[in-house]
Amino acid sequence: MGILDSFGALVSSIIASIVLLVFAIVSFFITVFIVQVGAGLAGYSPSGDYIVLSAAILATGAIVAGATPMSSLAGVEE
């Protein structure tokens, strides 16, 4: 049963990686839309490369912040 358990863990981690990748891509597209609308509301018309760069930085920051364990900041011990 050890091999089947290992195979199940491998498949579940692959599925989790695919789901996280899809969520990251969706998050990036939503951030591109928000940055573009926000720049328009502020009266700016930046080129597409600056919009994509700022959206990539914001999406990366959100993903890294979501993956960072916050228990050390709250004083909670595991």
Rank of each mutant, 00 (worst) to 15 (best):
I34S: 14
P46I: 07
A59L: 02
V22R: 14
G43Q: 05
V11N: 13
A55Y: 03
V37H: 01
F23Q: 10
I25E: 06
V22M: 15
P69N: 08
I14C: 14
F7W: 10
L73V: 12
S72H: 08
I51A: 09
L10S: 12
I14Q: 15
I14L: 14
T31Q: 08
A24G: 09
I15Q: 07
A65R: 10
I57D: 00
G38A: 06
I63F: 01
D49N: 12
S13L: 04
T60D: 03
L21Q: 15
I18Q: 13
T60R: 01
V22F: 13
F23N: 13
T60C: 10
I34A: 15
V26P: 02
T60P: 00
I63D: 05
A56T: 08
P69V: 04
Y50L: 07
G48F: 04
A9R: 11
L41F: 05
A59N: 13
L20T: 15
F28H: 10
G66A: 02
G43V: 10
F23S: 13
M70D: 12
T60N: 04
A59Q: 05
A67P: 03
L53H: 01
V22I: 11
L21P: 00
A56D: 01
F23W: 00
P46T: 08
G43C: 03
I34L: 15
D49M: 02
V52D: 03
F23T: 00
S45F: 00
L73E: 01
L21K: 14
S47A: 13
T68P: 00
G8K: 08
F7G: 09
V35S: 06
L53R: 08
I57F: 07
A59W: 02
G48C: 05
V26W: 06
Y50K: 01
S12N: 13
G8V: 07
G48R: 06
L58P: 14
Y50G: 13
S12H: 06
Y50R: 03
S72C: 08
A39F: 08
P69Y: 05
T60L: 10
F29E: 07
S72G: 10
A55P: 02
S12I: 00
L21D: 15
L73S: 10
S17F: 12
A16P: 06
I63L: 08
F28E: 07
S17N: 14
